[in-house]
Structures are given as structure tokens and as C-alpha cells.
Design a protein around this nucleic acid. Sequence first.
DNA 1: AACCATGTTGGAATCGATTCCAGTCAATGG
DNA 2: CCATTGACTGGAATCGATTCCAACATGGTT
Lengths: 335, 335
Amino acid sequence: MNRTRKKNKNSAPALADVARIAGVGSGTVSRVINGGKNVSPKTLARVRAVMEELGYQPSFAARTLKGAPTNTIGLIVPTVADPFFSSAAAAIQEVASQHGVLVLLASSENDARKEEQEVSALIQRRVDGLIIAPSADSAPALVKKVTFPVVCFDRPIRHAGLTTVMADNYGGARVATEHLVDRGYKRILCVGGYGGLMTSQKRFEAHKDVVQQAGLPYLAETQAEDFISTQSAILRHVRGSERIDAIFSTKNTTTVYIYKILKELGIRIPGQIGLIGFDDFDLAEVLEPSISVVRQPITRMATRAAEILFEEMNDPKSAHQNITLDVELVLRGSC
Amino acid sequence: MNRTRKKNKNSAPALADVARIAGVGSGTVSRVINGGKNVSPKTLARVRAVMEELGYQPSFAARTLKGAPTNTIGLIVPTVADPFFSSAAAAIQEVASQHGVLVLLASSENDARKEEQEVSALIQRRVDGLIIAPSADSAPALVKKVTFPVVCFDRPIRHAGLTTVMADNYGGARVATEHLVDRGYKRILCVGGYGGLMTSQKRFEAHKDVVQQAGLPYLAETQAEDFISTQSAILRHVRGSERIDAIFSTKNTTTVYIYKILKELGIRIPGQIGLIGFDDFDLAEVLEPSISVVRQPITRMATRAAEILFEEMNDPKSAHQNITLDVELVLRGSC
DNA sequence: AACCATGTTGGAATCGATTCCAGTCAATGG
DNA sequence: CCATTGACTGGAATCGATTCCAACATGGTT
């Protein structure tokens, strides 16, 4: 009916609309969009005015189709509800923002299947890069199909040959346990997250090594994800002649649970039971007693991961690296 | 040189490649991708096999260009480092995930200019919807150019006529202050975040109203964003004959600062100074004393915001709503 | 035998920005 | 006055998936 039809709906204006209204060719408009090189001041001004008037925004899809970068990176974490990962996300976000890049956030809930779907969704969206805190079961196949750089954060994907940024989990757990041993604790329980995770594994392992080397009894570590299971684990070890006198918690949320549980039980810290945790948290120093921890440099880890990702995006040939950041023993009042 | 040239690089395979190798037309491949309706079982199988073999992934950009939804929503918050917003992000994420949608995360740092750029970036990426916790200075113009539904979270954009989900800030602050008054506190200081924010404003306002109605002195509220400024504010009011006997903190981070500061000063809570905070936080109940608060139903707010957004995305004509969720007084030991 | 409904297929046109490749035009130099 | 440069400009071809429409085969009906 209308041969020079404006689009059927009132959808966003396109480059062609700008060109038509400004009375110039499509190429000229494109040149204006991309800096205005080789365009006379007069046309430049006119085209800019039309763009402004129409509220023209170039279509990302069309640009991407022509091979332009999406200026978007993916970030896959187990959950942003965990302060560890939300701090990391904030830091990564910050770096991305400095590069004019947006972050596509996905949470895997530590579910390898969900993770796989999310990677696939990110591939389709043609992100320029990906930072991932892999689930326990991530296989190298997960990243087989990606055509962009991938950096692992906090945990590796075994045998995938990817750049990985993580904390010194073994070293940190060793230092923590050694400290408990030095302070004279004899029956030390290790409580923490799911052992399938490489981070937890390393921490459990270090704890076991130190305890056994010191000639102390090794109490099988307890994998407790939530409050209830942590509670029942504690209850099992807190009475009777076999009772423990210290706890090494491998996870920040668990540390808080343990603090609450001991308080409720009326157990004195560090008098009856000493406590040290892996990972610092906001209120660790205002609790009573304040909680000793080994602190991961979360922000530094995340920033580093993001920076390396951007390096690899700029230079896809750059070699993969394995980066382990040191952990810091923060002694406070709980042991 | 090579008329049926494969693309210049080894880029991802396209639909045309699948069609060529499978010996079918482009339309047929498209049908296979979209469910295989009206395709014979034999061709279906063959095409699927080729897709599998090539590791074919449809190009999101091309689909978007043809007007398909991006299955992506935007989320703009001041920062994900704040536990309030990271909890909200987690809840929104969760709802999005159920809808098979990814979340593009951007943080505005409460900077209206940055916010504007981010909205623009999201428009270009053609997100299907947007949830935003606007900065103090967000003008209605911010969302003038959007062609997709927008839901405000936690704070409104004045005069923009958008669906808004927020907590009952006035009511919550009223209840909190009333509680302090009921407990017999006479000189109540109100400390909190930047007053340009509608949330802070409402809370200050309610506090002032209640205090004045009770015939108590109204101490000018203190806008303190960080630890240092909070500290100096407290110090100003804690000595001398004009000294305060209670504090209403309008912000969770501030509440923690105040707790630390009072502890350091050796001031007893609630004996010398009573304390109540707006917004619950993780360790509020294990501190000593435990901290009384009014609790915003963060997860419920965020989930609701996300659900409404999806409703509006499905039915763009649906009316805008203004939703205020009730806040809960959680009495603990600090006042 | 002529007819139609149904199922299947190929291929052209389309979405919007980019990128060339020709052109136009004015200015400069010989 | 012609030639050559250089700054501008228009427009066709392109990226990859979708969506039509026309075409054809099959089987069953009259």
C-alpha cells in the first residue's frame, strides 16, 4: 500500500531512516556513526541532528552480524548470593566497565548441566570472553566449542589448559591448621563445603596433612553445605570423651554457622573450642570473639582474572597462565 | 578465486554451510532448528547429524536482526558489592533463569551519567526488558528511548510512569522510630545514606515526623556514606550535655559501622545508646547485642519485580503498577 | 481423469550496519 | 587549460537466520 513504507510497527529507527531523512547515503551515515572521518562538517552536523531527533541507536545485532565485537563478556558463578562471588562479580564488573564492556551474568548453582546450557547461550550471544568459576564436574568438553578466551576463577577445569586464577588453598589451609596446632589444640575438626570442589579438596587435604604430621588424630572432615547439616556435624563432636577442642572451617558461610551454633550451645570460644575460618567476612572482627581467618584476596583475584581475560581478548595468542595468589593469616580472638 | 568459498577465516559454521553439506535448502535447515515441523523424518535426521558434526550454533545476531527476542534482560544497580543488591540480583537472576533468559548486569555507582550510558548500551543490545534501581538523579528522559518494558526496583524514577516495586520506606522508618520513642528514648539521631535517594528521604521524613509529633527534639539527620563520615557524625553527638541516647540507622552498611564505632568507644548498647537499623543483615542476630531492625523483604521485592517485568514483556499493554511491600519490625536486643 | 488437500522442499527477500568501489567535485600544479 | 590529487559521497554486496511463496509429490475423492 505504501511503497516507501516505514516499518510495520513503531520499532526503533534504523540507519536507512536516518539516511533518508537527512538526504544522504547509507555509507555516509555509517561514517558519521563511526567518528565522522571523511565527512564534510555540514553533512556531519545534519546527520547528527537527524540521529538526535530520531533517537537513533545503532543495532547491535547488525554490527555483530558483520563481525564487530559484542563488547560483552560472560560471567558464570555458582550464585551471586554468596558474598564471595558477589564481591568477585563487583570487581570484574568494574574492570569490564573501564573497558566499556558489559557483563552477562549467569549462575550455575554448581550444576554442570545448567552450566553447559549457559556456556552455550553465551556462545550464541557471541560474547568476547568468559570468566567462569566452574562447578565441580565441569569437563574440558564444556569449553570445546568456544571461540573466545576463557579464564577460570577460583577453581580450575582440569585438563582444559585454561588460564586459571585462584588462591593458594592448600597453603592457606595449612597455615590455618598449623596455627591451631601451635596454639596447642589437639582434636581439630575440619568442616566445610562440598568435597567435589577442588578448593575444598585442597583445604581438606592440607588440614589432614598437617594434623597427621603433628601426630594428632585425624577426624574425618565434614562436608556441610547448609546450617542444619553443619549443626548436626558439630553436635556429634561436641560431647563425650571424644569431644573436639578446635574447628577449622573451610568456608565463610560455614564459619558463621559454626559461630552461631557454638553460641547457642553456650560453648565458649576460644576457651572450650577454638575456631578459625577460611575466607574473611564483613563482620569477622566485630563478633565476640572476633574470628581469626585466612583471607583470600577476593578483589585482587577477580580483578586479575578480568585483566588477564582482556589481555587474551586483545592478543588471542598470549600464553595461558596459572596464577595462584597468596592468602593471608588474619589473627583475631577466636583461637 | 574460489567461488564456493568457505569463509575467509575458520569462523563458526553458518546455516548455509549446514544446508550445503546436508544437500538441502536454507529454509529446511531453519525448520529443523525451530522444532522440525513440516520436515520429513529422513531429512530431519540428516540435517541434525550435520549440525552436530559441525558443532553448529545459530547466530544470535542474525536472529535478533530478524526481530526475534534476545532472551536477555538488563539489570542496573548501583553496585553488586552491596549485599542488598546482590541478594536482589540473585533473586532476579533466578526468575530469569526459569524463563530461559540471561541477565546483563551493569552497575551505575549512583552516577546518572554512567547510568545513561548503560541504558543506551542495553537499548543497542536490544534487551527484552530492564530492571533498574535508579540513581538519585535519574530523569524520566532516561527511559524515553526504550522500546521495552522497564521496572523500577527499590526506588522510582519520578514522573516516568513506570511500574515500581519498593518497600514501605516511610512506614518502616516510622515504626522503627516509634519503637525507640516507646522505649523511652529522648534524643534520637538519624544516620543514613545520601538524602538525594528517595528511599533515604522517606526514611528521614518519617523519622522527623514521629520525633516531632512526640514532642522530642529533632536532630538534623546525618547523611553518611562511609565509615569515616559515620564515625565523625557519631562522635559529634556522643559527648556533652546534648548527647544522644538512641540512633536510627537508615541503611544496613551504616548500621554495622555504627555498631563497630560504639563498640570501639566502649559505649554500651542498648544501655547508653539504643540502636535500630533499616534493613536486616546476615549477622544481625549473632552480634552482641543482637541488632533490632526493620526488615525489607528483599528477595520478595526482587522476585516480584522480575515477575512483573516478564508479565509486561508478554503483554506490553498491561497497566503499570505501583507496588509497595510491607516491612517487618524485627525486635532483638539493641533497643 | 480431473481435482484438491496435505506434506515437503528450495530459494528469494528481508532485517540493519559495514565496507568496499566508483563516482563527483573543487583545488592545485604544470 | 588540462591533468592530478584529494576530500566527499552514494550505493551495491555482505553477514546469517527467518519467512514467505511457489513448486512438487502423494494420496484420496468425485
